[in-house]
């Protein structure tokens, strides 16, 4: 059982995003949800941090244009949502009129309208879901796609018993694991990524039990392979477990 003092001791590091264990972070968040005093302290730390971040480098001039074009696609996604809400309001209106007047004819008509509206809503929802999945893409995933499209990147499949993922590595050593379709592990375990470089195996990242897209950094000039192992949560410095998925360069 954690005491209030123990939680309080974590408020500074929590506000600075310096807690890397998800369960420890969740513990603080649970506490913050019901403790005004601690929430205020975190808010204070964050505003101090924001003041501390005075270092203002000029953002690239074309960045707003990028954001603006993203908004246009977000806008086309949002419009159906408004009509969705209007649709729901109409259903509510139709149903309440029917209840008040109590006429069978009206009720039948209402349910037909309700049916039609429901179909329309389902259609809109499908459109929204599709648009959302496209728009909510991870920036890391987008970076990987851009890198792969540059044509100078190594793009390979890391696969094995656990499933497959796509790895993209740039000549400067920036790498991404995307389209990760590994079977989820028990939370007490984690996938770990290893790079074989110049005959040595080096940890390139702890991926968690149900990994999504991740970025990593390696020495691309010496890359001979990428290997995934299953380890206890937290990962290991060197592994004695067999490869659960791998890509090996042709020698």
């Amino acid at each position: 059982m954690t005491t209030h003092d123990e939680i309080r001791n974590l408020l500074g590091v929590y506000a600075l995003d310096a807690i890397d264990h998800a369960d420890e972070r969740a513990m603080v968040e649970t506490h913050l949800a019901r403790c005004d005093e601690c929430r205020e302290e975190v808010d204070d730390h964050r505003s101090v941090a924001a003041v501390m971040a005075q270092a203002e480098l000029a953002a690239p001039t074309d960045l707003w244009n990028r954001i603006g074009s993203e908004l246009e696609s977000a806008q086309s996604r949002r419009r159906p949502r408004w009509s969705l809400i209007q649709g729901m309001t109409s259903i509510a209106a139709v149903v309440s009129i029917a209840a008040a007047v109590g006429l069978t004819v009206l009720w039948t008509q209402a349910s037909r309208e309700t049916e039609q509206l429901r179909d329309q809503i389902a259609e809109l929802q499908a459109g929204i879901d599709q648009a959302r999945s496209e728009l909510q893409r991870d920036p890391i995933e987008l970076a990987a796609d851009r890198a792969a499209a540059s044509g100078t990147a190594l793009e390979v499949t890391v696969g094995g018993d656990i499933g497959t993922s796509r790895a993209v590595v740039l000549p400067d050593g920036h790498g991404w694991l995307t389209n990760v379709e590994f079977a989820p592990l028990d939370p007490s375990q984690t996938y770990q990524l290893w790079a074989i470089q110049d005959g040595t195996v080096i940890s390139a990242g702890i991926l968690g039990s149900s990994p999504g897209t991740v970025a990593f950094q390696i020495d691309a000039s010496k890359l001979e392979g990428l290997v995934i192992t299953v380890e206890d949560a937290g990962g290991v410095v060197s592994s004695s477990n067999p490869a659960a998925a791998a890509w090996l360069a042709q020698t």
Binding site: I202, A204, Q217, I218, D219
Partner: peptide, 23 residues
């Protein structure tokens, strides 16, 4: 503060996801 908090947390998430010793 809000915008910087979000930015910081995204940046830290990215760093944590590329926890290679080398980098």
């Amino acid at each position: 503060t809000f915008l910087l908090t979000v930015a910081h947390s995204r940046a830290v998430d990215l760093i944590r996801s590329e926890q290679s010793r080398r980098s």
